[in-house]
């Protein structure tokens, strides 16, 4: 008995019963290698953009991100792993892209970046990189709880002409194939991702909109409350999994 206990102690906790798999584990060896090598991962190009934006003033008399937050490697460590997080002023959880734009409007008096713009993706990727290798640790704020529940309901709710819920593919049939592609478990571990099909960078919301179009539903708009709720639920579902940003996906 004691020997068994010793053996169990040697095993990392996650290895015991965690059947969750990041989408990257389903990819070909070549695509995995591309993600792992920072000089082959195209997402690093956007990271470079983000790093430059971090220390660039939006106007001569305005502050750059770095003027308040300092070195991103220290101040932004673990931030992307926590978002969407509750914002008291908005009275609701906001995702990382919205947080960047709120900060831009409030503290930099600059125009917000458009959804899916190269600048916004670049900054998101740069912030995400500061959390790479850390576990996803969702916002513990209890005020986020009803929004997370709303996200769960959306995840389980059928939608579109094909009348599918997210859960029907990503819970019930994960690991099987939809045409030629493996259905992953839908854990948002690497966003924003460089998707080879897109030949470019995209956010989790772009990916969600893709899936919604796939089931012939009208996709929620970028930044819509439903999007943030779904994002919040997905991050909780993936709690403890490792952040891979910037991820590469096929």
């Amino acid at each position: 008995m004691r020997r068994l206990a010793c053996l169990l102690l040697l095993l990392p906790a996650a290895a015991l019963a965690d059947e969750r798999r990041s989408g990257s584990t389903y990819m070909s060896a070549e695509t995995q290698a591309m993600q792992k090598d920072d000089t082959a991962n195209p997402g690093m190009l956007w990271v470079q953009d983000g790093a430059a934006l971090w220390s660039r003033k939006p106007a001569a008399d305005k502050k750059a991100c770095a003027d308040c937050h300092g070195d991103a490697a220290a101040s932004m460590k673990g931030v992307a792993a926590r978002y969407p997080a509750f914002d008291a002023e908005q009275g609701r959880p906001v995702d990382l892209a919205t947080r960047i734009n709120l900060c831009r409007e409030k503290h930099q008096q600059a125009a917000p970046f458009a959804a899916e713009s190269e600048s916004l993706l670049g900054l998101s990727a740069w912030l995400g990189l500061q959390s790479r290798g850390l576990p996803i640790s969702p916002d513990p704020d209890p005020r986020s709880e009803p929004f997370r529940e709303a996200g769960r309901r959306l995840y389980e709710q059928r939608m579109g002409q094909l009348n599918f819920a997210c859960a029907q593919c990503h819970d019930d049939n994960a690991g099987k194939r939809l045409a030629g592609s493996v259905i992953p478990q839908a854990h948002p571990t690497g966003y924003p991702i460089y998707r080879l099909e897109w030949q470019g960078m995209g956010s989790l919301q772009r990916r969600l909109r893709n899936c919604m179009t796939g089931v012939r539903a009208e996709p929620f708009a970028y930044g819509a409350p439903e999007m943030v709720e779904l994002e919040l639920f997905l991050m909780s579902r993936a709690a403890g999994m490792t952040v891979e940003t910037p991820g590469v996906r096929p």
């Binding site: 090598d37 000089t39 082959a40 690093m44 190009l45 470079q48 953009d49």
Partner: peptide, 8 residues
Amino acid sequence: MARTLINV
């Protein structure tokens, strides 16, 4: 200028 990644 386009961004580049070079590994030598």
